[in-house]
Design a protein around this nucleic acid. Sequence first.
DNA 1: CCCGCCATGTAAGGGGTTACATGATTCA
DNA 2: TGAATCATGTAACCCCTTACATGGCGGG
Lengths: 175, 175
Amino acid sequence: MSLQHAILTALLEKPSSGLELARRFDRSIGYFWSATHQQIYRELGKLESAGLIRELPVSQPARGQRKAYEVLPAGRDELAAWVRRSEDPRPLRDPLGLRLRAAAMVGTEGLAAEVQRHLALHRKQLAEFEAIEARDFPADGSGDALQHLVLRGGIEMETFWIKWLTEAAERLPEG
Amino acid sequence: MSLQHAILTALLEKPSSGLELARRFDRSIGYFWSATHQQIYRELGKLESAGLIRELPVSQPARGQRKAYEVLPAGRDELAAWVRRSEDPRPLRDPLGLRLRAAAMVGTEGLAAEVQRHLALHRKQLAEFEAIEARDFPADGSGDALQHLVLRGGIEMETFWIKWLTEAAERLPEG
DNA sequence: CCCGCCATGTAAGGGGTTACATGATTCA
DNA sequence: TGAATCATGTAACCCCTTACATGGCGGG
């Protein structure tokens, strides 16, 4: 049920249409949860049926206007209750780790290049996170402390990947 | 399809029954991929139908003996081909990160305790990984280098979580 | 003998991914 | 006006999770 609560959080931060939500999941919310637009539309429908959100009434309906949703009080209550729930960390599932393990049995051919490719992806992601941090959380302490904390999580996660993949690159042949 | 390849890897390392596999997924293989016994039985059936593994013939069938499977040449080929495939990293999905983000909207009540609980879980996991490292990969360099690398990944991942959750504990009220 | 654990499964449902469909807007 | 893009969806499939079922075996 995490996706519904991610959407509620995003809509509380700012009422949005489905596609706007999808874009925001690619950015800030996406540090710790990702979603495609198909998932988002489905969950928006469910949330509306459940009476947790509603379509925002538009002041002067222009043609081609997108639907936007806002959170109802019941939705805020549900989110507050969910935040207080206890939930174990999800088990990690990473195919590249599995490939390294499998390579111990069937050979490492091609893996060095794949590790380099992942390194580049994680470096790019880290650079994006750091740019967001520099822009939204200047050293003067403005900006929401909790949102900064979550962003720090994304940054440190990418830093972990880069460190580990660098070790992997050093230990693989052809690397 | 990663689970099937995880099972092939595990069976190449050592032919096993379904339940033995489930146990091994709780330990070594599980650093980067987890699976329940239900998933494993289902995939074992598929792998056998596909001709990638077979039941191990038993020399002297004792009563109550468990089925054990071994990888056939076609299975090894499939695994080798999979290792050479390219696959993007999976997006992270962590409910606790989401809760912190949601807490910025609806309040942090109860979150400090949850962060402490996760901290304890990750510290325990890290201790287990480090015990395995000390046992299986002594400083003399014996032990498979790739398997050690994968274990290092698990260790560094847990280290990341502990670092980040410690920061979170410092920044949350009631902490 | 009975209870609990071991071992192998089945069933139902939730969630995520990929591919496709449809109408509207924008731009060359 | 035709192509590309925006925006909102539908459908099918796969994978994972949770709960339950069944039979054998082992110890009190």
